[in-house]
Amino acid sequence: MRISVRYFAMLRERRGAPSEVVVVAPGATVGSLYADLFPEPRPRVGFVVRGEVAPADAPLADGDEVLFLPPVGGG
């Protein structure tokens, strides 16, 4: 399955790009993808799948867009 992923802030810096397309095995969840991409995961990162906030166990489907949202710092 091909998943397009968008990164922000320190996650973007760590991956070295604001977005990329990754290939994951069937059965992957947004949480398992995050753990694969970030072996030392930060706590309190939010997940968005297909434009909606999603829990870590949300399943992924081919063509999904995923966003990883670090703790916010606006204001």
Binding site: F8, V72, G73, G74, G75
Partner: peptide, 23 residues
């Protein structure tokens, strides 16, 4: 609510480094 919820991120740059700030 803006500081708690709105997906905006802030990086502080110092003379000798930088850090992402979490609210």
């Amino acid at each position: 609510q803006l500081k708690a919820r709105v997906p905006i991120w802030k990086k502080e740059l110092y003379e000798d480094g930088a850090s992402w700030k979490e609210n």
